[in-house]
C-alpha cells in the first residue's frame, strides 16, 4: 500500500466527518509520509507502521465518542466535586451547631440552675430572719398580750356589744318615731277629706303639724344614730387594729 492508496482509503472511511476535519486529519498523515520518507523509509513501510486505515477510522470514531463521553465524565466530576463541597460545608454547619448547643446551652442551663439555687437560699434566709425577729418581739410582749386578751374577753367584748346594742336600738327607736310621725301626718291629712272613726275633728290640724314635726325629728334622730354608729364602728376598728399590732408585737 503506497501513500496515495492509504490516503484514499482513509478518506473513504472518514466520510462521517466534516470535510474540514477530514482534510486536517488527512494532512497529518500526509505529513507523516513526507517525514517518513525523509528518514529514508519506503511508503509501504510507513503505511504498514501507521496501521490499517479502517483501524484508524475506528480509533477516530472512538475518540469522538470519547469526547462526548468525556463531557459526561466532566459533568459527573463537577457534580461530585460540588456535592463533596456541599457535604463538607453541611458537616461544618452541623458541627458548629452541635458545638453551640454543647457549650452555650449547657452553660445557660447551669447558670440558670445556679441562679435558682442562690435565690432559694436568699429566700430561705429572709424567712428565717423574719421568724427570728418575730420570736424576739413576741417574747417581750407576752404579758401585754395576756392582759389585752383578758381585758378583751371579760370587758372589751361586752363594752362593744353594749355600744352596738345602744346605737342599734337608738337607730330602731328613731325609725319608729319617724314612722309614727308619718302615720300621724297621713291620718291627719286623710281625716280632712274623709270622716274617720276614732279621730276627733279638732285634732286634724294640730295632728298634721305634730306629724310633720315628729317625722322630721325621727328622721334627724335616725341620721344621728346612724352617724353615731359609724363613729363607734370606726373606734372599734381602731381598737381591733391596736389589738392586732400588740399581737404582732409591733407596739412596745
Amino acid at each position: 500500500m503506497n501513500k496515495k492508496q492509504f490516503i484514499e482509503e482513509l478518506r473513504k472511511n472518514l466520510k462521517f466527518l466534516k470535510k474540514e476535519d477530514r482534510e486536517e486529519i488527512l494532512g497529518d498523515y500526509e505529513e507523516h509520509f513526507i517525514f517518513g520518507k525523509e528518514k529514508k523509509r519506503t511508503e509501504a513501510e510507513i503505511a504498514s507502521s501507521l496501521g490499517k486505515p479502517k483501524e484508524i477510522s475506528k480509533e477516530i470514531k472512538q475518540e469522538l465518542n470519547q469526547e462526548s463521553f468525556n463531557l459526561g465524565g466532566m459533568l459527573n466530576d463537577t457534580f461530585f466535586v460540588m456535592f463533596s463541597h456541599l457535604s463538607d460545608s453541611l458537616k461544618i454547619i452541623l458541627h458548629s451547631v452541635q458545638e453551640f448547643f454543647k457549650t452555650d446551652f449547657k452553660d445557660f442551663i447551669e447558670r440558670k440552675k445556679e441562679s435558682v439555687k442562690v435565690k432559694k437560699k436568699e429566700f430561705v434566709k429572709k424567712i428565717e430572719e423574719k421568724q427570728e425577729e418575730q420570736k424576739a418581739k413576741s417574747k417581750g410582749n407576752f404579758i401585754k398580750k395576756f392582759i389585752l386578751t383578758f381585758f378583751n374577753i371579760f370587758i372589751g367584748i361586752w363594752i362593744m356589744i353594749s355600744i352596738y346594742i345602744t346605737v342599734g336600738s337608738l337607730f330602731v327607736f328613731s325609725i319608729a318615731i319617724s314612722v309614727s310621725g308619718l302615720a300621724t301626718l297621713v291620718t291627719s291629712i286623710v281625716g280632712i277629706f274623709y270622716a274617720l272613726p276614732y279621730v276627733a275633728d279638732n285634732f286634724l290640724m294640730p295632728g298634721i303639724f305634730a306629724g310633720i314635726s315628729i317625722l322630721v325629728g325621727g328622721i334627724l334622730l335616725s341620721i344621728g344614730s346612724w352617724q353615731l354608729g359609724r363613729v363607734f364602728s370606726k373606734l372599734i376598728k381602731k381598737y381591733m387594729k391596736f389589738n392586732k399590732k400588740i399581737m404582732k408585737g409591733e407596739v412596745k
Partner: peptide, 16 residues
Amino acid sequence: ISEGTLYPILRRLKVE
C-alpha cells in the same frame, strides 16, 4: 501501538 492511531489521540488532546 500502530503509529496511525496516535494522530487521533493528538487531535483529541488538542481539542481538550
